[in-house]
Amino acid sequence: MTAFSLNPEQTARCAELRTLAAERLRPLAEKGEPGHVNRPLVAALGELGLLDALFEERFEGGGAGASPPGGASGALDLCLTRESLAYACTEAETAFALQGLGAHPVHAHGSPEQRERWLPPVRAGHAVAAFALSEPGAGSDAAALSLAAEPDASGGWRLTGEKCWISNAPEADFYSVFARTSPGAGARGVTAFLVPADRAGLTGTPLDMLSPHPIGALAFDGVRVGTEDVLGEVDRGFRVAMTTLNRFRPSVGAFAVGMAQSALDATLAHTAERTAFGGTLKDLQSVGHQVAEMATRTEAARLMVYAAAAAYDSEGPQGPGIARRAAMAKLIATETAQYVVDAAVQLHGARALRRGHLLEHLYREVRAPRIYEGASEVQRTIIAKELYAAHEEEPPA
C-alpha cells in the first residue's frame, strides 16, 4: 500500500465510520449546546472505542521516537477517522480530535503515574482533555508565551498569567499547560505541565466564538504545580508542544478534507437537480467547471494529507521533513476546504445561508482551522524555513 491508495479494509472502515457518525453520533451532537462540551457525545466516542485510536502509534522505521509494532493504527488511520467523522458530523470529529490534542502530551511525555491516572478515563470518554498553549499575546508565536512558572519554597512552581482561545476550556477536566520556567530563554525556557481543572487558583471563562465547539480563556492565580506535574523535562516543553502539533496537523487537514468532500457531494446533488435557464445547473459550463475545480482541489489536498501521515508513520515524529510535510498538509487542506465550502454556498444560493442548512454549518466550521494549531501564515513560514535548511545542507553540485 502507498500513501495514495487505500486498501479495501481502510475503505470499508471509512464507510463504517461515516455511517456510525450519521446514525449514532449526529443525534447526540444535535442535542448539545453550542459553545459547551457535549459530554454524552464524548462518552459515546469512548463507548464505541473510537478514542483508542488517538493513543496508538506505530512507526515502521527505526528512527527517533519509534515504538514497537502491534495493534497500532498510526497517523494515517487517525486522518482517515477524522476525515470520515467530519464528513457526517463535525461536532463528533471535533470532540474526538480535542481529546487527542489535549491528552497526547500525557500519552507521549507523561510519567507512568500521570498516564495511569488520566489516559484510561480520557479513552473511555469520561474525562475531557484540553491543550493550553495559546495566550492573548502569543498565539501562533508559541515561543513568546508569557505564562510565568515561578519557583516556590516547596521545590515546585506557581503559575501566574493567562491562556486564551483554548478549546474545551473552561469545562475540561485537565489541561496540558505550557509555561515559562526560564525568562528570556525563548523556546528553550518553556515547560509543559499537567494541571487538573480543580487546582486552586485556576479559573476560566467561555468565549462566544463563530465555531460551535467550546473555546475559553483560563486565568492562573498562583496555581501550584510540582515536579510530579511536569510533562517531559523542565525547559523542554516547547518540544512537547511541537511534537504534539506535528502529530495532529496532518489530521487537521483530514478534518478539512472531510468538510470539503461533504460540501462537494452536496453541490453535486444540488446542481444535478436544480432547474434553471431551461435545464439543470450542471448543464451550465460555468457550474461544471466550478465543480471540477472543487473536486480537483479536494483530491489534491487529500493526497497531501495522506502522504504527510504516511511519512509520520514511516519515520516517527522526529523524522526528516516531518514538520514540513505536516505544515504543507494543513496549509493546503484548510485553504482548500475554505474555497470549496465557499464555492458550494455560492452554487446553492440563498438557501445555503439559512440557519440549520448543512452549508451554513460548514461555513461556520471551516474558518477556524486556517487559524488554530498554527495559522496558514505560520505554516508557510515553517515550510520555507525547512526548505532553506535542507538547501543549505545539500552538498555543492
Rank of each mutant, 00 (worst) to 15 (best):
S314G: 08
S67E: 14
A103V: 00
G288M: 12
V287Y: 10
A307Y: 06
A179H: 07
L353C: 09
L359E: 02
R324F: 00
P121N: 12
Q290F: 00
R297G: 15
E365H: 10
A300S: 09
S314P: 00
F174G: 06
E315Y: 02
E56I: 01
W118Y: 15
T336W: 12
Q318N: 13
E83N: 06
R115T: 00
E392A: 12
A3S: 14
G70W: 02
P40G: 09
F96S: 05
L202C: 10
G222Q: 07
G161R: 11
P214N: 10
T205P: 02
I382C: 01
Q114F: 06
A350F: 12
P105L: 02
P40T: 08
G237D: 14
G321M: 06
F248I: 01
L51T: 02
G137W: 08
E93H: 05
D342C: 11
C79T: 09
C164A: 15
A144H: 11
H36P: 01
G319S: 06
E293F: 01
G137E: 12
E171M: 05
A3M: 07
Q261I: 01
A15M: 07
L48C: 07
A88R: 04
H104N: 13
T81K: 01
A254Q: 02
A95Y: 07
S111I: 00
G204P: 11
E228L: 00
R82Y: 04
A138L: 08
L54G: 06
A329G: 12
G102V: 09
L48A: 11
W165T: 04
V252H: 10
L245N: 05
A44E: 15
E386C: 06
P34I: 00
L78D: 06
D77S: 14
E365Y: 11
R364P: 03
A127H: 08
D208T: 13
A307F: 07
R18P: 07
R249Y: 03
G216S: 05
Y372N: 14
A124D: 07
G204V: 06
G237E: 14
V234C: 07
G63F: 00
G321Y: 07
L359S: 04
G155N: 09
T205M: 07
S251I: 09
E30I: 03
A149L: 04
E30T: 07
S182K: 13
L207K: 13
L98T: 04
T11I: 15
P112W: 09
A124H: 01
A350S: 09
P40S: 11
Q379S: 12
G139L: 12
A187M: 12
Y339F: 15
R380Q: 08
L231Q: 03
S262F: 02
S154L: 11
R82K: 12
R18Q: 14
L101H: 10
A263N: 03
V177W: 13
